[in-house]
């Protein structure tokens, strides 16, 4: 199946891989924001995940251990953020920005001596004959395990938010922390756990870049992926399946424009690169206009400091 000289099946298969880091980071950030915390430090958590995952994988020789290491690195950063914003009640926007600055610096320090080292390879899962199915084979059955994990996380997040008590509590805390507190929920604990989940996901996303996509360590290698993840959460209006869609669109636009170029089609690169952000703004406007003035789609307590005064 080709359109304009581009094989759609191949395109989809490769944009899935290209989008996995931002998908992981975005699904984590979604949970954090659902609980009412805006963590702008995704980039910092991702880059720490990238280096911690890399170091863990190189020393253990196992990419699986590497991804655990990445998740740990991201979680540690998230805990730092949680300590500052939940216990010491610092401003979330400023703390998030500081987290990114700190993460970029610290990761480069840890990474000294790892330039040029090659990590153990992450192989595709073997689905045997399923791989050979036309169209579906390459799209669904020729990836490494992290791609499937990211999809499972989307499904899991959706199910938890929608059907479970945990999801209910999370949403309650994010919508109105004072009411949730009055109902006896422990707002800070819930938020800290949500942040840790976000950090673990961002860390795995970073590790996916250093262990699978590139795979190598170089300073600042996430190159802004964390910021894109933030945009995706907004684009998705805080819904898991739309995060998947958003990540694949954001990742897909990059892959598509490169592929169009490779196929010899001239395209205005800058216009295509800014398109996802303009679309995100448009989505936001439509969403907020449709719901009326009171509800703006975002969790109502997003970014606000919670302090139990009673």
């Amino acid at each position: 199946m080709t359109i304009g000289g581009i094989d759609l099946v191949v395109l989809i298969a490769s944009l899935m891989v290209a989008s996995t880091p931002i998908l992981l980071a975005a699904i984590g950030e979604l949970i954090a924001e659902k609980s009412g915390v805006l963590n702008l430090g995704v980039e910092g958590m991702m880059i720490m995940g990238a280096i911690c995952g890399f170091v863990a994988a190189v020393h253990s020789g196992s990419p699986v251990v590497g991804f655990f290491g990445g998740a740990l690195g991201g979680t540690a950063m998230a805990l730092l953020f949680a300590f500052l914003t939940q216990i010491l009640l610092s401003n979330q926007v400023a703390t998030g920005l500081a987290l990114t600055l700190f993460g970029l610096g610290l990761s480069a320090l840890i990474g000294q001596g790892y330039n040029g080292v090659r990590p153990p390879q992450t192989d595709n899962l073997n689905f045997g004959p399923l791989t050979q199915i036309p169209v579906l084979g390459p799209i669904l059955f020729q990836h490494d395990w992290v791609v499937y994990l990211s999809l499972a996380l989307v499904a899991g997040t959706w199910a938890v938010l929608r059907y479970s008590r945990v999801g209910l509590i999370l949403r309650a805390v994010g919508e109105n922390h004072d009411a949730a507190h009055a109902l006896g929920y422990r707002v800070r604990t819930v938020r800290t756990l949500a942040l840790m989940f976000g950090g673990a996901c961002a860390g795995m996303g970073g590790a996916y870049i250093s262990l699978v996509r590139v795979p190598q360590w170089s300073d600042g290698m996430t190159a802004g992926a964390g910021w894109i993840a933030l945009a995706i959460v907004v684009f998705a209006s805080w819904r898991p399946w739309r995060v998947l869609l958003g990540a694949y669109i954001f990742g897909g636009v990059t892959v598509l424009q490169l592929r169009l170029q490779a196929a010899g089609i001239a395209i205005p690169v800058q216009i295509l690169s800014m398109a996802p952000y303009l679309i995100t703004i448009l989505v936001l406007v439509i969403m907020s206009a449709r719901r009326g003035r009171a509800a703006i789609g975002a969790p109502a307590s997003l970014g606000r400091i919670f302090h139990a005064s009673s």
Binding site: L38, V93, W227, L230, A231, V234, Q270, I271, S273, M274, Y277, L278, T280, I281, L284, V285, S288, A289, R291, G292, R293, A294, A295, I296, G297, A298, G303
Partner: peptide, 25 residues
């Protein structure tokens, strides 16, 4: 956008940074 539709200004202003960067390029 905030006044007219109630759109969240944190997110719109952040998105516009990327648009501006592309215009700069």
């Amino acid at each position: 956008l905030k006044n007219r539709f109630g759109t969240n200004e944190i997110l719109v202003s952040l998105m516009l940074v990327y648009v501006a960067e592309n215009i700069l390029s």
